[in-house]
Design a protein around this nucleic acid. Structure first.
Length: 323
DNA sequence: AAACCCTCCAACCGCAACCGC
DNA sequence: CGCGGTTGCGGTTGGAGGGTT
């Protein structure tokens, strides 16, 4: 065996990320932009993670503009067709769905779509036999297309109950941090934030609304607010406008475009493009200081037992990343 | 109620591509 | 051109939570 895995180095932490680590990383990225991951562990005090882990955490979880939750039929259709055309090139597929990470798409494919296709193959062996004289790609594509059409004609509202919900974007990412952050110290050290309930894309579970927007929206739904306290409406508005810009920013950078070549001739086309100078300039003065976010996250999460400002936030406030 | 099984997803690992020297 | 370092990608896994027996 040759080299050691980068994360085998002593002092390098592995496993689920804590809210504290997320905040450290997000704060660093906000200041320096994504990229140069090698320098992240050395320049961030208290973040004992390898560069790989940092990059992954950012691209798959913290990056603004990430859409989480159930896949829409449109997204599903795109994935199915792109997978049929491109194979398991998840990063490339993800470049067509800039709000989704390659990891998410890969997981969704492995846990849902592959199964669907298998069922489809069993249910309609005719398709495969009919296509047996064609290329494998065509066969697969036909089947996949069939699966997609099947989804179209079935009860989509039953299959995809989130259709009417705005998706939570980066605001959710941040609020997720906040939510975990506000848990008891025991919880904070227990590793990754608890998942907000299992999301069953194919089910019509009654908890889907909460699952769709488990943070701001969920909090606003009047449940157990527990030990959470919140920022003022103004701070929240500012934060969300920041998130909105960040989301659009990333979205623009992410779109496969010859005008935005990848920073280092990159193979693949991962959405996590670095902030280029031009874009930085365009955003320039409009970018609110990250210190506000830090203050919000770390500061006096103040208003202990404070009022639930989020109750005033309309549900669609989470839909900050309209592309 | 407990044990077991299943599902899902965040995170890890190994490898390949790329870059700078 | 070769080498070492860095980054990105895709396959796989660990474990939490939900469902079933």
């Amino acid at each position: 065996m040759g080299r050691l895995p980068c994360c085998d180095k002593v002092g390098i932490k592995k496993g689920p990320w804590t809210p504290e680590e997320d905040i450290i990383l997000a704060s660093y990225i906000q200041e320096h932009g994504p990229g140069n991951w090698r320098s992240v562990p050395t320049n961030t005090a208290g973040l004992m993670r390898c560069s790989k882990s940092c990059r992954l955490r950012w691209t798959n979880y913290l990056r603004p503009g990430i859409k989480r939750g159930n896949f829409t039929p449109q997204e599903e259709g795109m994935i199915i067709q792109l997978q049929g055309l491109l194979g398991n090139r998840w990063a490339t597929i993800a470049s067509y769905l800039p709000q989704r990470t390659d990891n998410d798409i890969k997981n969704y494919w492995n846990t849902h779509l592959k199964k669907k296709i298998k069922q489809q193959q069993q249910a309609a062996p005719m398709i495969t036999s009919m296509a047996s004289d064609s290329s494998a790609a065509v066969t697969t594509h036909q089947i996949m297309f069939n699966v997609h059409n099947d989804a179209k004609t079935s009860d989509l509202h039953c299959l995809f109950p989130r259709l009417n919900h705005p998706y939570a974007s980066s605001a959710e990412n941040i609020s997720r941090l906040l939510e975990a952050w506000m848990k008891s110290p025991a919880d904070q050290t227990s590793g990754k934030p608890k998942q907000e309930g299992r999301q069953q894309p194919g089910s019509s579970s009654s908890s889907n609304a909460a699952a769709a927007a488990p943070t701001f929206q969920g909090a606003a739904s009047g449940g157990d607010h527990g030990n959470c306290s919140f920022v003022s409406q103004d701070e929240l508005d500012s934060l969300l406008s920041f998130e909105n810009m960040s989301s659009n920013h990333v979205a623009i950078l992410d779109m496969p475009s010859p005008e935005h070549p990848k920073h280092h001739g990159g193979h693949g086309s991962h959405p996590a493009a670095p902030i280029d100078a031009e874009m930085e300039e365009r955003l320039g003065s409009h970018r609110p200081p990250f210190s506000m976010l830090e203050t919000w996250l770390l500061g006096e999460t103040a208003n202990e037992g404070g009022e639930d400002h989020l109750a005033d936030v309309p549900p669609d406030v989470c839909s900050v990343a309209e592309f």
